[in-house]
């Protein structure tokens, strides 16, 4: 990356598109595709009632924490449920929560960030206070409040994570808007008598899209980890929903006898986050070469 930076300094045009599609390398695309297929399968297995027995079936109680066998390629858990299907459904939970949280926090963050950066000093002060108050609280607190209010489960988790997560994005959006609003075309729109709302929708939002894109991948990754963390503490999805965090918590109880439930669930979780981080890094480099190499 160092030579890339130097090339920039010398004014030499940089070729960045070799072996890449939409800024993301082919190897990463393969990973994304594999995980996408697995996640879609996971969501299907999670939501289609007739398929739910795959990961709830306890008829194999005798095969308590059994290692891999012919019928169960990844063994069974401590209640005799098939580990492969539980991991797949757990991946479905992760993606479901990750995408849900990303959509809500991105929308909220865009709105609040634009209002703060573009709608005057009073709006800016107000949104700043709201952002800072939100920012000061740990998500876990909100998760418990929502769990008490809506009943524990995935909707409570999604709301809690989204309502604490948007603040960091709003802050970034506001910063971007502060530079965007000095551009000539914005000034021109103002002179033409366009309303702030019109300028926001027509000029600010399209210019913020690359950033939004990068950040949504980042949000999916952080939400997936946070959901697993809440489930691990017993504050997230309730049994028998097979969150990866719940599988880890279960594996922890049998840590002294077997290691592979933790290795499997932890491995899936880590690979997923690694993949999403790498996608978001590559997208950022693609959209903004200045930040490359960090």
């Amino acid at each position: 990356m160092a030579d890339l930076a130097m090339a920039h300094l010398d004014g030499v045009p940089v070729k960045r598109s070799r072996g890449r599609f939409a800024g993301v390398s082919l190897g990463t695309w393969v990973g994304v595709l594999l995980f996408a297929v697995a996640s879609v399968l996971g969501v299907v297995v999670l939501l289609v009632p007739s398929l739910q027995s795959l990961w709830t079936d306890q008829s194999l109680r005798s095969t308590f924490l059994a290692p891999a066998s012919a019928g169960h390629p990844l063994g069974t858990d401590s209640l005799g449920r098939d580990m492969f299907w539980r991991l797949l459904a757990g991946l479905g939970v992760s993606i479901f929560v990750g995408v849900g949280v990303a959509i809500i926090s991105i929308t909220l963050g865009l709105i609040v960030g634009i209002v703060g950066g573009f709608f005057g000093r009073a709006a800016d002060l107000t949104t700043n206070v709201v952002i800072d108050v939100t920012w000061a609280f740990p998500a876990i607190l909100l998760a418990v409040v929502f769990a008490g209010w809506l009943g524990p489960g995935l909707p409570a988790v999604i709301l809690a994570l989204a309502l604490t997560g948007w603040a960091s994005f709003a802050r970034i959006v506001r910063g971007e808007v502060l530079t965007l609003r000095e551009r000539d075309y914005i000034a021109a729109s103002k002179v033409l008598g366009r309303s702030r709302l019109w300028i926001s929708v027509r000029h600010l939002v399209p210019n913020l899209l690359p950033l939004t894109f990068v950040m949504s991948v980042f949000f999916i990754a952080t939400a997936i980890v946070a959901e697993a963390g809440l489930a691990f503490l017993g504050l997230g999805a309730q049994p028998p929903i097979p969150s990866l965090g719940a599988i880890l918590a279960q594996g922890r109880d049998y840590l002294t006898t077997t290691w592979w439930p933790i290795a499997l669930a932890g491995g899936v979780l880590t690979l997923l986050v690694l993949l999403l981080n790498s996608v978001s890094d590559q997208l950022r480099e693609h959209f903004d070469p200045r930040h490359g190499g960090s």
């Binding site: 963390g229 691990f232 880890l248 933790i262 932890g266 979780l269 880590t270 986050v273 981080n277």
Partner: peptide
Amino acid sequence: LMAIPNFVLALL
């Protein structure tokens, strides 16, 4: 270390 969730690292 950025990819591995802290509770997974803790368990490991």
